[in-house]
């Protein structure tokens, strides 16, 4: 029972990180209808930028952890957002409205570019960071002597994710930007005729997605204590899986999909075998899509004849 509870906590933490990345995929897919393959790498860049910001702040003598973390969060979001913006501007905007596979290939190219640019710039080694926020928030010893613990990092991750989720849902539901996004999603041409700056809206979508991915990067760094140039691929694929699982285009779907993938992965590793955790996640994706072709919360696609 304690073991189960512990896995549940770990799964939710991991799921939060996937969910944050998945939102970027889902928003971009919703608005431009493309798989932003480079998004996983934007997440990786976010992790690096968070690490660099943290190291720079410590070097400058900012040692109060909450202050430093808040600053890192802001800095990482800002700089990663710039990356997101640039990727869209260079690799996707020139291809808008063109052949559907072109942006996909260009995205794959961008992903290779980012991965290797970071590798060359920062070196191929894994970057370890000693625990920034040590200690447990909650701890209880069960009957069998097994300890259930919620670490402070886990609390930070889940809380930050929740806050950001709520904030972004409000942003999309209530603000003019959100309205513009939804309008572009429905009908880009009509939206532009009605005076919505489509380019700007799409750019901002990429910026938002990248900012959230950088938060996920920071969380990843805090949780695992390492980043390297290769984390983007696996995390990206799983986050995209999460987005599809939840129903692509739906923000709550992305979060639920993220949580599901996190939980499946954690429980599978805990009860079956860690080696096959990704196999489990991918198999469930395939099964869900076969039986619910538009994901859990996605709108079913009506075939118009």
């Amino acid at each position: 029972m304690e073991y189960f509870a512990q896995q549940l906590i770990n799964g939710v933490t991991l799921g939060s990180i996937y969910g944050l990345i998945a939102i970027g995929y889902t928003m971009v897919y919703g608005i431009v209808g493309m798989i932003n393959f480079a998004h996983g790498d934007v997440f990786m860049v976010g992790g690096f930028l968070a690490l660099i910001a943290w190291l720079a702040l410590t070097a400058m003598g900012v040692t109060a952890v909450p202050v430093a973390l808040a600053l890192v969060l802001v800095l990482a979001m800002a700089f990663t957002a710039l990356y997101g913006w640039t990727v869209e501007r260079l690799a996707y905007r020139p291809l808008r409205g063109s052949f559907r596979l072109a942006p996909l290939i260009s995205a794959i190219g961008m992903s290779i570019l980012l991965q290797n640019a970071v590798q060359v710039a920062q070196g191929p080694r894994v970057k370890p960071l000693p625990p920034v926020v040590p200690g447990n928030f909650f701890q209880s010893e069960g009957a069998g002597g097994f300890v259930v613990a919620i670490s402070n990092v886990q609390v930070i991750i889940v809380a930050t994710t929740l806050v950001l989720m709520v904030a972004f849902s409000l942003l999309v539901a209530k603000t003019p930007l959100g309205r513009a996004q939804r309008a572009c999603e429905q009908d880009r041409k009509m939206a532009s005729l009605l005076g919505i700056d489509v380019d700007r809206t799409i750019s901002l979508t990429f910026v938002m997605g990248a900012a959230l991915a950088s938060v996920a990067g920071l969380m990843y760094l805090l949780y695992y204590g390492v980043v390297d140039f290769y984390i983007g691929f696996v995390a990206g694929v799983k986050a995209f899986t999460a987005a599809v699982l939840g129903g692509i285009g739906s923000l709550p779907g992305a979060m639920i999909g993220g949580l599901l993938i996190g939980l499946i992965e954690t429980f599978w590793s805990a009860y079956f075998s860690a080696e096959y955790k990704d196999v489990a996640a991918f198999s469930i994706l395939i099964v869900v899509l076969i039986f619910m072709p538009s994901g859990l919360l996605g709108r079913p696609e009506v075939e118009k004849v």
Binding site: L90, A91, L95, S106, G109, M110, I112, L113, N116
Partner: peptide
């Protein structure tokens, strides 16, 4: 060369 490879993919598509 991988950086260039990625960039070339983007450029050819554009």
């Amino acid at each position: 060369r991988l950086i260039v490879f990625g960039a070339v993919m983007v450029l050819i598509m554009v």
